[in-house]
Every structure is written in structure tokens, then in C-alpha cells.
Design a protein around this nucleic acid. Structure first.
Lengths: 341, 341
DNA sequence: CTGTTAGCGCCTTCAG
DNA sequence: CTGAAGGCGCTAACAG
């Protein structure tokens, strides 16, 4: 397949070239190639043959300019280096590609300005749809930048009632599993390393924790999703007059920070402190102690979001849908369990 | 800034609109906005004001169609979910964006066909340049798909003499440090968990190891860059009649596999077996034992590659350059050292 | 069933 | 210093 009989064509073949060699008009060639309209089998065959022989590839630029469709969707994430977003991107890519769309990725660098800039660029490029893991842009600013008729699916973090749908994790169920499990180990004084309240996963996990654990106020520590923050908050928790006997981390990063702090302070897990976390990092089994966590398939988040988006793009008035991706509890040693298998 | 006086403009303002409101011709408006040609300060000001008032954003599509430049570069990676590629993407993004380019990401899914498809799409979209971490496409196939005048920089894995430059890590120096360090601990029977020979990092690390350690042939085990492979090869090494006393892993994944295997087999690190690795995963300090590794800044790989590419795109005949990104040794406990700080 | 015409939005000669 | 004309490559009306 890689051996074309091309002598290094400088200017790639154009539709006009194809039409000429096939001996038909440009419009006929276009029709044949796009399977539009009725036309005789013989001319169609001739055109297709000519196109193949010339290695014709229609210019997406010209086509998009004419049709006002780009078959491209924009994907905005706060940080592509985060394993979660990287994995969900892959999931989204796979379904979008099989549906004939390309992906244009933009990293908002965790800032609202970055996000607005990204959205602006994408809209300017006339993407047919948007996949957004928002870094916190407000509904007003969003509506200001994104035309109302551009379908948009939010993932991970939701922007109130906007968009053609949302995909989030079963945050509440996950936190409940974690708290429940710690209860089973006899813990009653359980603390939470919480993420930012502005983000859906932050607030949902926090709320679920409050509902499930009914904690004393000082046992809730909020901060960004970083290892450093996790370490710092853990330190504060441990310095309490009555420190917790168990900690629930709202994310893997936070749990890692907790781990680091405990190591630093000489606190032995799980004997002196139990730890469980939302998010199961792929190396969770190799940590010391191995991490009991709530896991899920991040790629599934991307797939679900892309599926929703494709639906919205193909069908003008597809119903708005909100999808939850399921989570499961993975018991390991940091909670006090014996290692499985 | 977010409060435009727009009443939900359906059709975005066009250059013609701007020209009309400014009371000049389209060509003049174009000149004013692009700072091309000589023209009176007053008209220029009028045009700019009109453009701002209408919130004019030139259509990249139309512009590209006309100018044959897209200010877009394609980025092809084997797997964007890999932390290394994700981080280098971020590095590349940052310099490309400040140079006025956008990035179009394609994931080759580790396969040559995927890579060829990705390159074809990118070329078809008339990207101005290419950043490629090849999954193994041959020079012939590459030349077949990518026009010779499209600047291309290879990173991580190099394609013989092709392209406008390459960016790789100091593979040899890194491996030498690792071997040297193990020697310092008294090891003489050192094994290597090697990556695929076809890839530059695989072969360079292998060659450096052979040169530095002069190992018995059975101490070299080749396989893909996966955790599973690392575990499997470690098992084989440990089953040897005369097993190694130390292992050098060619990548973090392989080291993690080694760790998993040792845990499985009840081999205690670093007492019964020392382990060091190329690649310093961000959680390296939290593993048990913490991992002695050769680290580097993956974002720097992306930055360097992007810088090279921008140079090649701006300057027709920029000299071909090959950049090496430096690496450093991070001593932790898996080699037998006491933890630092 | 097929050809002709007319742009999509922009930039770049070529005239004035 | 400015305007008019033409066309990048493609598709969608409109005729035949």
C-alpha cells in the first residue's frame, strides 16, 4: 500500500485534476466521491479510479470553508499531563475517530483565562463540537464565547445547566464505599482530604463524605488536588488534639501527599492511621502500604462523553443526557486489610 | 472583558463587515489588520477600531486556504497516556503557542499503521510542521507520506537521517551513571531490563549498558516497555543458575514490573537484589523501597523539539540540529543507599 | 443524469 | 496610499 507510483508530486492532486483526468466536470467528480445525488455507475467508477490513481485527498480546509463543518471537535482540559485527562482523551479519541471526527486538544493550564482563550480558539476554528473539562469558567463567560448552537459535553466537572450533556463519576457512591469500609475496620473518627469546592468532583465527594461520616468540622481539610496540599493537610490533621484514626483522600494525588507526610513524620500505615482514596493510580499496589482505593475506567469517561457529543452533533435535537461512570472498591493494605490474592 | 455588547451574533463578523463599517475596501482592511504595506495612520486606526467593535476574528480556514499556511503543527505520539509523552506535549505546547502555532495531536496507538494514518491526516490538513515520536515507521514509508518540504523534528526515537532535527535524552550517560553507582555498591553481576531494540532509547540504553557493564549475555532481557514485561523478565533473571545481584531497568515501567515481581517472589530489595532505573516517576520516593533513578525533565524534551521546529519553519534553511536533554542521578534506597535528606 | 455558476472568507497581485 | 479583481479547493443551487 505504501508504494504509490508517485514521482514526488509537489502540488497534491486537486478535485479539478481528478475531474479532468476522468473527463467530467468538477461537480460530477464531487458527487461521485461523496456519493451524493444520482449518477451513472460508469462515470462514478471513472472518477473513483482517477482519484485513486492521482492519490487525491480532498482538502479539509476548502471543504470546511464551503460546508461550514469541520468534522473536528475541541477538547479542553485543565492539564493533559494528568493521567486522568490523558486517559479520558484516549477514550474520546477512539470513538470520535471511528465516527469520522478529529480532535483538537487545548490545555487550559488550570486557569479560567486559559480556558476562555482555548474555547475562543476552538470556536474560531469552527469545531463542530466541544468536550470540556472545565477549569472553572462561569456560565456567562462560557455563553459569551461559545455559540449556543455548538454542541458541548462537559466531563468530570459540570457547568450548571449548560451543554448537551455531562459525564461524571459516581462520586457519592465511591465515597460511601470508602467510609463504609473504614467503618468495617472499626473507625469512627474519620477525616477527609477534600479537593476544591468549585469543582464538581470536589464538592460531590465532600458532600457525600459529610452525609456518610458526619464528621467533626475540623476533620475536613480543603485544598488543591496536589501532592503538596495532601501532605500539608495531613500534617494539620495529625497535629489535632484528637487526631483522626483514618483518612479518606479525595484523589490519588492527595493520598500520595498523605503517604509522604506520614513517612516524614514516622506515622506507620495502616497501624497508626488508615488511609483510603478515591482514584486508583496504576501503581497503587506497589506503594507501601499498597493503597485501598475506589477505582474506575478513566477512558470510559472519555468514551461516554464522546458518544454523547457525537449524538448531539448528528442529531440536532438529541435529548440532554447526564451519564455517571461506575466505580468499584479495591481493597488493599492501607486500610488495614490483608493483601488480596 | 467578557462583556461584549453583542446580542448573540449569529454569523461572526467577517472582514467584509469590518471594511464596510470602517468605510474602506476589504483589501485595505486586510492590510491594516495584518500590518502589511504602507497606509495612512487614520485609516488603519479606523479599521482596527471597527474590527474591535465587531469582535472580528479572521477565519483561520479561509486564511489558510488562501495563504497555504495553517500555523498548526502536528504532534504524533505512540501513546498520549504515557506520562512522558503527555509532559513533553505540554512543553511543546507552551513554546509553540507563544510562537503563534496551534497543536494538532494524534495518537498512533503504538502501531506503524496508526502512525502512517496520523501523518497522512496531518499532512492532508496542511500542518506547517511535524513533531514525531515515531512508533517505528520506516524512512521510505515516511517519505512517502510526508512531503519533503514539511519540517519535521523527531523526539525520543529517531528516524535515521530524516527531518529537520532530533531531540533525545542522554541515554548513554544515564546508563553509565546507573552502572557506575551500582559498582560503587560493590556489584559486579548486573543485569539489564532492556526495551525494544528498534527504538532509539531502547538501543542506545542497551548499547551503553553493554559497554559499561560488559555483562554475560544471559543478563540482558529484552521486551516491550511494560510493567508486565518487566515482571516477567525479572522472574527469568531470578531463575538463573547464577542470578544477578543488581538490575538496571531501562524505564520506569520495567522497574515497576521488577518491583512487582520481587514482591510476588518474596525477594527483598535492596538487600537481596539492588534495583536502579532510567526514568524517575514522580512517585518514585513513595515506593517501597524508594527508587534510585536517572531523572530528567520530560517537558524539556518537548520544549527543545518545538524550538527546533519553529526555527525550521521560520527559516527555510535552518541547519539540522540534534539536541540531547541532560539527565541526573537521584539516589534513593532501592540501590542500597540510605535515603537522602 | 450532468454541466455551469457562484460563492465560503481571506489575501495578493495589479492598477490607479 | 487605496480599490478592484481574481482565486485558494471545494460544494450546492440552478439549469439543461
Amino acid at each position: 500500500m505504501t508504494t504509490d507510483q508517485v514521482g514526488r508530486r509537489r502540488r497534491p492532486a486537486t478535485l479539478a485534476d481528478v475531474a479532468a483526468t476522468a473527463g467530467v466536470s468538477a461537480s460530477t467528480a464531487s458527487r461521485a466521491l461523496n456519493g451524493r445525488g444520482e449518477l451513472s455507475a460508469s462515470t462514478r467508477a471513472a472518477v473513483i479510479e482517477a482519484a485513486e490513481r492521482l492519490g487525491f485527498q480532498p482538502s479539509p480546509l476548502a471543504r470546511s470553508l464551503r460546508t461550514r463543518r469541520t468534522t473536528t471537535v475541541g477538547y479542553v482540559v485543565p492539564d493533559i499531563a494528568s493521567p486522568f485527562y490523558a486517559a479520558s482523551l484516549k477514550g474520546a479519541q477512539s470513538v470520535l475517530e471511528s465516527a469520522g471526527y478529529r480532535v483538537m486538544l487545548m490545555d487550559s493550564e488550570q486557569s479560567v483565562e486559559g480556558e476562555v482563550a482555548a474555547l475562543r480558539t476552538l470556536v474560531n476554528h469552527q469545531v463542530d463540537g466541544l468536550l470540556v473539562a472545565t477549569a472553572g469558567v462561569g456560565p456567562a463567560a462560557f455563553a459569551d464565547v461559545v455559540d449556543a448552537e455548538t454542541p458541548c459535553v462537559f466531563l468530570d466537572s459540570v457547568l450548571d445547566g449548560a451543554g448537551a450533556g455531562t459525564v461524571t463519576l459516581e462520586n457519592a457512591a465511591g465515597i460511601e464505599m470508602l467510609v463504609e469500609h473504614l467503618r468495617g475496620h472499626g473507625h469512627t473518627r474519620i477525616a477527609l482530604l477534600a479537593g476544591p469546592r468549585q469543582e464538581t468532583s470536589g464538592s460531590e465527594r465532600l458532600d457525600a463524605f459529610v452525609a456518610a461520616a458526619r464528621p467533626a468540622p475540623e476533620l475536613i481539610r480543603t485544598g488543591p488536588w496536589t501532592l503538596d496540599s495532601g501532605a500539608e493537610q495531613t500534617g494539620a490533621l495529625l497535629a489535632l488534639e484528637r487526631p483522626p484514626t483514618a483518612i479518606v483522600a479525595s484523589s490519588a494525588e492527595l493520598a500520595l501527599g498523605c503517604l509522604a507526610a506520614c513517612r516524614e513524620l514516622g506515622v506507620r500505615l495502616p497501624d497508626e492511621l488508615a488511609l483510603v482514596t478515591f482514584d486508583d493510580p496504576y501503581f497503587g499496589a506497589l506503594l507501601e502500604p499498597s493503597l485501598t482505593a475506589v477505582g474506575y475506567d478513566p477512558a470510559e469517561v472519555g468514551r461516554a462523553a464522546a458518544t454523547l457529543l457525537v449524538g448531539a452533533m448528528e442529531d440536532e435535537d438529541a435529548p440532554r443526557r447526564d451519564v455517571r461512570v461506575p466505580v468499584t472498591l479495591i481493597r488493599r493494605r492501607s486500610c488495614g486489610c490483608e493483601e488480596e490474592r
